[in-house]
């Protein structure tokens, strides 16, 4: 079987999802043998830039015209386009920027003075908002085991099964004490898509929702329940939007 041609790309972001791939220290060399890695600018100065790809992994958000052009080129080359991480799947923290271009230009001027207004800068959007995406892997960053499982599935020619349960379910399975019942002001675990094995609540840290909302999340019903622990409604809503302002939170409001 010929090795599938793969490209790994980063748009605007922190490069954390590419780093998770490089952090697969035990699997990296085996992976490099199984995949024909054609593009990986972060790790190689020899990049294809042109040939068709079976799989393109794309992290980051679209925050400039340059990002948008690169993404459209990648889409044109790829059979499977995988959006990797919170920025690509839901806009991530940069998308807290509300998409209001005037407010954004004011912020640019605050930060960089008049020079900033000449920068190639667009309101951040998720990859999923700009081109059709075949698969999404959430998380800030993605979980190593989920990334490896996704690559293993694609090597077999089919997508991995979707995660259809919240972080809360995994937290119960881990037999953790419930932070909300113990009086934490807010934990986003009940609304957030699972797959992280309740990483943060297992450490005693309330879930911040970095993996975005589950398919049937109902924030409209959840917010009043959360509010019983004393946090004002607007603070709860701001927290839910922290990592996925461009996702479906707002629809239910």
């Amino acid at each position: 079987m010929p090795r599938p041609r793969v490209g790994i790309f980063g748009l605007t972001g922190c490069a954390g999802d590419q780093l998770v791939l490089l952090d697969c220290e035990d699997e990296l060399l085996a992976l490099a043998g199984m995949l024909d890695i054609r593009d990986f600018l972060m790790a190689s100065s020899q990049n294809d830039g042109d040939s068709p790809l079976e799989v393109a992994l794309v992290e980051g958000c679209v925050a400039s015209r340059r990002d948008e052009e690169r993404l459209r080129r990648i889409r044109g080359r790829a059979r499977w386009l995988v959006a990797l991480g919170a920025c690509a799947t839901g806009g991530g923290v940069p998308a807290m920027d509300d998409g209001n271009d005037r407010a954004r230009r004011e912020r640019l001027a605050t930060v960089y003075g008049q020079t900033g207004l000449s920068y190639d800068s667009l309101p951040p959007r998720a990859v999923t908002e700009v081109v059709p995406v075949d698969l999404s892997l959430p998380g800030c960053p993605v979980e190593k085991q989920e990334l490896l499982a996704l690559l293993a599935h694609l090597l077999q020619g089919h997508p991995p099964p979707p995660v259809e349960w919240p972080v809360c379910a995994e937290c119960r399975m881990a037999e953790n004490r419930c932070l909300l019942l113990d009086g934490a002001p807010l934990c986003c675990g009940p609304l957030t898509v699972g797959g992280c094995q309740a990483r943060c609540p297992s450490l005693g840290v309330p879930c911040l929702g970095c993996r975005g909302p589950i398919e049937d999340a109902d924030p409209g019903a959840a917010v009043p329940v959360f509010a019983q622990n004393g946090l004002p409604r607007d603070a709860i809503e701001a927290r839910l939007r922290l990592f996925s302002a461009r996702a479906r939170w707002e629809k239910a409001e």
Partner: peptide
């Protein structure tokens, strides 16, 4: 590198 303005946000 795209401008994310995190400190403003």
């Amino acid at each position: 590198e795209g401008v994310r303005l995190l400190e403003a946000l």
